[in-house]
Simulated assay, not measured.
Amino acid sequence: MRLRTLSLVTLLLVAAAAPISGAAAAGASAVEQQSTTTQAEACSFPYSATDATGTEVTLESDPERVVTLNPSAAQTMWEIGARDEVVGVSQYAAYLDGASEKANVSGANGANVEKVLAANPDLVLVPSSSYGASKERVDQLRAQGVPVFVFGEGTSLAYVANKTEQIGRLTGNCEAGRATADDIRESVSQMREVLAGAEKPVGLNYFYGYTSGSETFIGDVMTTAGLRNGAAEANITGFAQINDETVVEMNPEYVVAPEESPVPANEAWNSTTAIRENNVIRVDTNYLQQPAPRSVDAAETIMQAVHPEAYEEYRAMQAENGTATGESTTAAETTTTVVVDDTPPETGAETGTGTETDADSPGFGVLAGLVALVGAAMLAARR
């Protein structure tokens, strides 16, 4: 995630160095006070908002203890500088720096209600998958008077920006939430600007026999980065299985896959341009499959591989605008884990395997049963 700090620091230094008359200082102070008051009022409590379930959630005061039931919500809290307010996380948020200091509220098949309640939260943030898989757990939390906000299924980077801003508002971190959301929007706008005239090759996202078609978050990450979504062009909607015949007919020039997830090596796949030219783009699992601020990094990884010259132009544009160009300042050493989260409610069923299948890979809930058999062993081996 890119945090715009340089320009702000420059403005502060210029302001500090400039002489200010008494009248001007008084006027500036009045304007500043008015602005601060306006911002405080805009971020005041009580605050009410309607979540994805149609439930009006009311927060009587600024939450000081937040539990996140999926790593995308946790990542967002980290990125808006509110990690100290988080008291509970799911097991798949372990890659975040300092997450080990938080209570692990995961159970055998998703969130453990008792662990969540033991964390004494003022607010619980819930992905659509967790709600679809175990609505009764949300009901149990609400029955105890705990405010629970359920998010909808992410389908785009615009959704990520809006979700980031919403989390900022819910947790009383309004300014930081807006700033981080604006950074996401600006990065997306800059990518599209430098790629406006570029020829966009066909790309295919692949994950254990499934792909991301139209109306998917990963599909939008790919197209923002300068690929055509071959699955969408093949009339695949949502997260669906893809067969070898479709892959051959599509003939993708690039394959986008999470780190360490296998790509088929059979005759059909080996005939594609992507495999013949070794154009398999490996993207950090925690960034590609979590609808959260660091998804911008996933798009950048793809863009750098497919359009290196445009990527350099994009980097120069960010530097010119006073935008930091390094990796997120809150990022820790990443533990690559195949996780499944933010799934459509109708497909996010519990698997009974002892692995959390609602951990943050947007939309891949249809994989829960399949990946539970193939992936659980991988997960256990890597832990």
Rank of each mutant, 00 (worst) to 15 (best):
S29E: 14
R2A: 13
Y210E: 01
L141K: 03
G27C: 04
A161T: 11
S261K: 07
L141C: 05
S187H: 13
S271V: 03
V126N: 01
E215S: 10
W78M: 10
A331V: 06
A93M: 12
N173P: 07
S295H: 08
T353E: 08
Q166S: 13
N243M: 07
A225N: 07
D62A: 14
P127G: 02
A119K: 10
P19W: 12
N286F: 08
A274E: 05
N286Q: 04
Q39P: 07
V263L: 12
A18S: 14
A359Y: 01
N229P: 00
P71D: 12
Y159L: 09
I184T: 13
A257Q: 04
V248L: 02
L13R: 14
A359P: 00
M250K: 04
G27S: 14
G365P: 01
A305S: 06
D62Q: 15
E186I: 07
F149S: 03
V248C: 00
A23P: 00
G375A: 00
A181Y: 06
N205V: 08
R192L: 10
T323P: 08
G54W: 03
V89E: 06
E79Y: 05
V160D: 11
E64V: 12
S130W: 04
E136Q: 09
S90P: 01
L8S: 14
E309R: 04
E165W: 06
Y95A: 01
N235I: 08
G219K: 08
G54Q: 13
A292T: 06
Y208G: 04
T37S: 15
L59Y: 05
P291L: 01
A359G: 05
S21V: 11
V247F: 08
A133H: 00
A179K: 15
G363T: 03
R178M: 13
V221L: 13
F149Y: 15
S7K: 15
L6P: 07
G81Q: 08
M378G: 02
A332C: 08
A376M: 05
W269K: 02
A133W: 00
Y206C: 09
I218H: 11
V283D: 00
P127T: 01
D220N: 14
T273F: 02
K102D: 10
G326N: 12
G154W: 01
V371H: 07
Q39R: 15
V14F: 13
M250D: 03
V366W: 11
